[in-house]
Nucleic acid binder design. Structure first.
Lengths: 362, 362
DNA sequence: TTGAAAGCGCTAACAA
DNA sequence: TTGTTAGCGCTTTCAA
């Protein structure tokens, strides 16, 4: 073990020159043998086997930084996301999962840039991007100002759920309005008439669109909105619980909503928790529908609106990689492209017909 | 917008030489002004401001690959994990979250290497590591063979929950046996006598240790084990559901277990789902305790054993970074170090005293 | 205070 | 078939 430890901690890695010397040939011959599919040079079997042997003996590994420098290609894509608070963000995770798979399928690596908010994005991204990644995926549902001033120039970029249009950047999103419309329409079909929406934060276009769908479903069904129909806060469990509880307090003595349409799965579970704390049962007393179809929904049999997050991540990686391949061609060919993926309602165990006898808020 | 699009897609980024030329000074003067805290050279204010201005005008960004080549430092750490199936792995996510934070706090980036299994690890890791990352974190709860043959030499490595000892690698783990002991002891204190364990897969040291704790708690309390006390499968929701259901089928007509101690939170939720499908209530009919304290536990008020996963990730990054700093010093100073972090039982809503009247399995 | 030169490890083009 | 040369962009001597 001391032996093995030592071999793993020696100071210097072998270079191509070392391998060449060991094999008694030039560094470039070694390069051609070990890394070069690209070169036209033919190498004799004699030389080839000596190089291979020397490389093995020296445990040669190509230095990827050096290769990147000459190839102008790092074989790595970057993903930028905000990581707020200490709670893991499943929305991001699902997307990230897809990006990883898409990148891995093309033999590419993925590096992550996390931001505490978009304020320091300009500096941090700029400092870490150039030359280190070949392209960037922006998971940007909360992006406020135009990033085109600080995005690394000369770097292909694809965004997911961008909150705004970004010059020269392809965007992937899902049809959130339609998903919300579908979910709320289903609730209305089941007979619900008092449907509360506990949505995502101000400044999120996605949250706005879910509200739009919620409204449109009511209009289409000719059902008037509940009084004080929409409350908004962060996309988290805690925020959902807090929002639900304070809505109930605010409307004490009134009739209980028959259903809750939540802006995310985490919010939905928070709402369920707040209801349970008051002894209310889901779906017997109140139906609940979430949004996103993250792992959370699947492990709690939550009815939800599925966005194909993993697929979006994978597709973002694919679009990005194709842009990286063609980056030296005419920029006009890759004008902003906007891909909208479908959403769908996923049945769960939190959906039922409304109670026959309405409940009052205690 | 066409303007901005164009500026983001020009073919070549400005180099230091360009900046120097634009400012009428040498490239190295530009380097000293823009990147050099290291150099002793003094630059006149005149030159400095001209360089700064030129850099601004040309939107100069240092090429990190080139810097890495000269500095022998990429400012990036790698994280290796297996990503089995399509389901996101919250265990990994929590750790990863911590790693990201630890790395970000030190101004470092993180790149992810995912493997479909440890079989292709040797090749993939080797191909992607050298020169591209400064150190590696191995999240290796399922690692089977000795990786020291394929680990990149000259690269500092830290493992988390390594399934085996790895030469020259510091390992972080948590006291899983004690956590399991604590959880099962608590169930016994509550009066439970028939406690089933639905554990993690064969080949996982962590799963073994949880079983050890489960056994020891029974011994310490002088309570005999249930008949057919332990079933094992993957750490997932589906596996938990399946294992629970088939155990129940196998023991049809016998007395229902009073409690289930699960090998992970996902398994626990799967068990709850299988119980619910038979109309059994948690915790009224059966108590359930999970393991890990992932997001899943927190959003479902599952009683669980908390492992400080995020902290482990963060600490792994810190240990790794300190090893990277000292990598050129005497290797003996950084002999394998093993850090064991404490676990603790987290109360939830799935724990109660056993029923007074036992139930039979239907 | 500044510039010229050499080199990090690898590779593409050209000569031998 | 092989070796030489030059250069990717940046930094670090060392000399001016």
């Amino acid at each position: 073990m001391a032996e093995s430890l030592k071999s793993r901690t020696g100071h210097k890695a072998a270079t191509l020159a070392d391998v060449g010397r060991e094999a008694g040939v030039s560094a470039m011959a070694a390069s051609a043998v070990l890394n070069g599919a690209r070169t036209t040079a033919r190498i004799s079997d004699e030389t080839r086997s000596r190089v291979l042997e020397a490389a093995e003996r020296l445990r040669y590994r190509p230095d990827e930084a050096a290769r990147a420098l000459t190839h102008r290609r790092m074989n790595t894509i970057g993903v930028v996301a905000t990581l707020l608070g200490s709670e893991p963000n499943l929305y991001f995770l699902e997307i990230f999962n897809g990006v990883l798979r898409g990148a891995a399928a093309a033999g590419q690596n993925t590096t992550v840039f996390t931001l505490d908010g978009w304020d320091d994005a300009a500096q941090r991204i700029a400092r870490f991007c150039d030359g280190r990644i070949d392209g960037l995926i922006l998971v940007a549902p909360m992006l406020e100002d135009d990033p085109s001033t600080w995005l690394p120039p000369h770097t292909p970029v694809v965004s997911i759920h961008a909150n705004r249009e970004i010059a020269g950047v392809a965007n992937l999103e899902s049809d959130e309005e339609a998903g919300a419309f579908q979910a709320v329409s289903r609730l209305l079909e089941l007979g619900h008439r008092r449907i509360l929406h506990v949505g995502g934060p101000m400044g999120s276009t996605g949250a706005d669109r879910r509200i739009d769908g919620y409204m449109r479903a009511h209009e289409a069904a000719g059902v008037p909105l509940l009084h004080d129909p929409v409350v908004r806060d962060a996309y988290t469990f805690e925020a959902g619980r807090g929002a639900m509880e304070s809505w109930l307090q605010r409307h004490r003595g009134e009739e209980l909503p028959q259903a809750v349409f939540a802006g995310s799965d985490a919010i939905a579970l928070g709402c369920i928790d707040a209801l349970a704390a008051r002894g209310l049962r889901v779906p017997a007393d109140v139906s609940v529908v979430g949004f996103d179809d993250t792992l959370l929904a699947r492990t709690s049999r939550l009815a939800t609106v599925r966005q194909p997050l993993q697929q979006m991540g994978r597709q973002a990686a694919e679009v990005l990689l194709s842009r990286i391949e063609t980056r030296h061609e005419n920029p006009l060919q890759r004008a902003p492209r906007n891909v909208v993926l479908p959403t769908e309602l996923v049945a769960g165990a939190t959906l039922a017909a409304p109670r026959t006898a309405p409940l009052a808020i205690g």
